[in-house]
Simulated assay, not measured.
Amino acid sequence: MARTHLTLAALATSAVAGIDVVAASRFGTGAHGDFDSALLTDRDGKHWIIRVPRNDRAQAEQSADLVALRALSAGVRERLPFRVSTFAGQTPFEGTRACVYEFVYGSKVPLHEISPELATGMGRAIAAIHSLPTSFVADAGLPTQTALDSRRSCITVLERAAATGLVPAGLLARWGRATEEAQLWQFQPTVIHGSLSADSFLVTEGQVSGVLGWQDLRVGDPARDLFWVLGASDEYVSDAALESYGRERGNIDRQVRHRAMLYAELEIAKWLLHGTQERSTEIVDDAVQMLDGLIESIANDVMNPIGEQRLPAASVDEVEQLLTRSERAL
């Protein structure tokens, strides 16, 4: 049963010493999300967010997010051209905990509404994350993945997807060649957000004002923070983001776009694996349909490795539908 915004407001007074809440309203996705959330206003006019997990998955995400936010010290945050939420306090509640954060202002822009100008700003924001020193991640005990680790994780997904017998042979061959191409995996790991999507960015007056959802913060393949933009229906959007990213980063590996393409395609394989794990015929059928659509979209290129040229990604509708379905199912 969802907790009311009034209950959440009362919890906030226990979580943060001295907070005087004068207004509260429900915030987020309501009954279909992983969290009960409320937007709070204190007597000074400052805004806060309180969240209570609804399930074990959300609780794990919350815990990881707290570790990441604490690792993002004031010195680290000064290097970023946008705001990151600050953890303010917590209180136990019904076997879990309610956490309060300072509110970060801005609006989310759906992938299909992102303009090339906004994409340019997003590319700069991602580059700023990837330019952070890796030492603070290691000091916080967060994951550190080498290029070899990234390659092995793709191989694992490929092998598990192949075992289902539901992935077209052309895609298995295409992904297999990509994992075997040594040049594709010659890159320097960086600090990465780890779970970026269009939904991660907050925008104010056409500029990136904040980035949310830091639970997968780690050192790893920078391409993991870029694959989502390849789903934009307007290719100028993905080009603008990647070109801006490249300008900010300077000398980066020349294969980052191609690995991003591989990650984008493997997201569908992961959706298939989720469906088989949950024994959901609906999810499996949906994933198979998406895989069939992908093989059709690259029908003229299946014999060419991903690293040789830019090939079509899933459409914006497919990407957004996949993300939405994943959030509802997980």
Rank of each mutant, 00 (worst) to 15 (best):
T7H: 11
T7V: 06
L11V: 08
T13S: 06
S14Q: 12
A17R: 11
D20V: 09
A24N: 12
A24W: 00
S25W: 07
R26S: 15
D34K: 03
F35R: 06
T41M: 15
T41W: 01
D42H: 02
D42P: 02
R43A: 15
R54P: 11
R57G: 05
E61K: 12
D65W: 02
L66D: 12
R70S: 14
R70P: 13
L72G: 07
A74R: 15
G75F: 04
V76G: 07
R77K: 08
R83M: 10
F87A: 13
G89T: 00
F93Y: 14
R97I: 04
C99E: 06
Y101D: 04
V104F: 00
V104K: 07
Y105G: 14
Y105N: 15
P110H: 08
I114C: 10
S115H: 04
E117N: 10
G123W: 01
A127K: 07
S131A: 12
F136V: 03
A138C: 08
A140K: 01
G141V: 06
L142P: 01
T146A: 05
L158M: 11
R160P: 03
A163K: 09
P168T: 04
L171M: 08
L171T: 02
L172R: 04
A173N: 08
A173G: 10
W175A: 09
E181T: 12
A182M: 08
Q186C: 13
F187K: 04
F187M: 01
P189L: 08
T190F: 06
V191M: 10
V191G: 04
V191Y: 03
L196Q: 02
V203P: 02
T204L: 11
G206L: 05
S209E: 08
G210L: 00
G213Q: 14
Q215V: 05
Q215R: 15
R218H: 09
G220S: 12
G220E: 03
A223D: 02
A223W: 02
R224M: 07
F227L: 09
L230Y: 04
Y236D: 13
Y236L: 14
Y245P: 07
Y245A: 05
R247S: 14
R247H: 12
E248T: 04
R254A: 13
A260V: 00
M261H: 13
M261S: 15
L262S: 02
L262D: 07
L266D: 03
E267R: 11
A269P: 02
L273T: 00
Q277N: 14
Q277D: 15
E282W: 07
A287I: 00
E296D: 11
E296P: 05
S297I: 09
S297H: 04
D301M: 09
N304G: 00
Q309I: 09
S315V: 03
S315N: 03
S315F: 00
V316N: 07
E320D: 12
T324Q: 10
T324N: 11
R325K: 10
